[in-house]
Amino acid sequence: MTALLRLRLAGFLRTGRALAPVLAGLVALGVLYGGGRAQPGEAYGVSAVVLFPVLAWQTKVLLDVEPDVQRRLAQVLVGVPRERLAGLLAAGMAGLGTVAVALLFPWLVGGVTGPVEPGDRSVPVGLAVGVWAHLLAVPAAVPLGALASRASTGGAGYGVAVLALGGVGAVVLGLTGSVAPWLAPPVMATARAAADDLAAPTAALLTAWALAWSATAGAGYLWRRRHRP
C-alpha cells in the first residue's frame, strides 16, 4: 500500500493542478496575516479555519487527478480496502505538507508576535496550540474532500457543491449560538478555544469531536464508493 500511496502523491505533485489549492491557501494566509500581528494561538486558530476548505479542495484534486481506470487498476492490484485507505492517507500526507507551510508562513511575513502582557502564552505553547488546531483540521478536511471527489459523486458539479456546502457549513454551523454545531467539524470552536485559555478537557473534547466527525464523514465516503470503483 505504501507504493500506491507514493504513486498517488507523486501523481498529484507532478500535475499543475496541485498548485491551485496551494496558491489559494497562500493567498488566504497572506490576507490573514497582512492585517497585523497576533499571538500564535489566536493566529493559528484562524489559520486552521481558513485552511479547512483549502485542505478539502486539495484532497479532491489529489483524488481526481488519478484517471478512473487507473483507480480501478489500483483496486484490482491491492484490493478494495487498501485502495480506499491509500487515497485517504495520501491526501492526509499532502494535507500535513500544507499545514507545515501554513505554520511556517506567519514567521516569514512577521504575522505573529510573542507575549505582550503578563499571563499571555509563551511562543512555544502558542505554537503547540497552533499545531494542534491545524492537526484537527486535516482529518476533518480529508473525508470532506473525498466525499467531493469524482469517485464519490460521479460528476464535477456535485463535487463542487459538496465542497462549498462543507466549507460554508463548517463556518456557519460553527458560529457561537449555532443550533446544530455537531453537524460540522469543530474548526470554529477550535479557533475560539485556541484564542482563549485552553483547558485540557476542552482540548480532549474538541479532539474527540473532530475525530468522530472525521470517522462519520469517512464512513460516508466508503459507503458512497460501494458501487463506484
Partner: peptide, 29 residues
Amino acid sequence: HVGWVPERFPADQPFTVERYLSAIGRAAG
C-alpha cells in the same frame, strides 16, 4: 492475484513507462 488489462489503458498520467511500471510492481507487493 488478478491481472486486469482494461480496454483502454489510462495514459493520462505524469509518469514515464519505467517509473509507472516500477511503481505498479511495488504496489503489487
